[in-house]
């Protein structure tokens, strides 16, 4: 299996405070990686650095054999990286259908899109995604009228419509009911293999169900990495979370 994403010594520092500190990460094609860690560990910042939303102080991000550090956000996305935000972001004044159609990016060129009237391509993809996330009956609803859970689904659906090689999911189950969370883990399990996923999550039941390998971050560094049981029993982890019930509680 080949490496699809590699972070080499990635660092993000504000004046005196280093949020991500010489962080290294290797993700294999088709795997589902969970990024864990307490608040302030640098998980979301790491996602920002991968997607170019924040500029890194030093280090390199290599995606699919290509150095993407320093590229603009839309260029990085066009390489095949999709992202779901921590605070769900959808287009509130557009219908669910239009939200998904905008996410179907066969071409991103404005002039090409002026003569694109939604016929042809995309229809099959839309059908597939809508069924997967269960918004069939909500297609004509405005994005702003959806419930919190539905908004999460829509955003996941949008990222899926993009069909990226690598999906970055920042807290995809936040605010979801148990059943919804269960359904999300089913989807994620179906996605891995074909897609590569990096998931930031706090729900340990969810993580247990989906993760191949966990990377535990602490103060911007890797504290431990490996399968769930191994990380849980790691003495360093126990030390950091001393007095607590282990990572499950900290998260």
């Amino acid at each position: 299996m080949s490496t699809i994403l590699e972070l080499q010594g990635v660092t993000k520092a504000y004046d005196q405070y280093t949020v991500v500190d010489n962080f290294n990460l290797q993700v294999t094609m088709g795997e589902l990686r969970c990024l864990l860690g307490p608040n302030g560990a640098g998980k979301t910042t790491t996602m920002d650095l991968i997607t170019g939303r924040q500029k890194m102080t030093s280090g390199k991000v290599i995606f699919n054999g290509r150095n993407i550090s320093g590229m603009t956000e839309h260029r990085i996305v066009q390489q095949g990286i999709g992202r779901k935000f921590q605070i769900p972001a959808v287009f509130k004044d557009l219908t669910v259908r239009d939200n998904l159609q905008v996410a179907f990016t066969r071409t991103t060129n404005p002039f090409m899109n002026m003569v694109e009237f939604g016929r042809g391509g995309g229809r099959a993809r839309l059908q597939e995604v809508v069924e997967l996330v269960g918004l069939e009956k909500r297609l004509d609803e405005l994005g702003g009228n959806l419930s919190h859970g539905e908004t999460q689904w829509l955003e996941i659906g949008m990222v899926l419509t993009q069909n990226p090689k690598l999906l970055l999911m920042d807290e995809p189950t936040a605010g979801m009911t148990e059943q919804e969370t269960q359904k999300t883990s089913e989807i994620f399990n179906r996605l891995k293999g074909e897609h590569t996923l990096i998931v930031v999550e706090h729900d340990m039941t969810f993580v247990r169900e989906i993760a191949d390998i966990i990377t535990l971050m602490h103060l911007g560094k890797t504290l431990a990495e490996g399968p769930m049981d191994e990380v849980e029993n790691n003495p360093k982890v126990r030390e950091v979370y001393l007095g607590t019930e282990g990572i499950s509680d900290a998260a």
Partner: peptide, 23 residues
């Protein structure tokens, strides 16, 4: 056209549109 939908999407949330790959 799709261009029309995209500019409304940008109006709603430019950041979201950017992370769908639009300049």
């Amino acid at each position: 056209s799709k261009f029309g939908t995209i500019i409304q999407a940008i109006r709603d949330d430019a950041e979201r549109a950017r992370f769908l790959g639009y300049n």
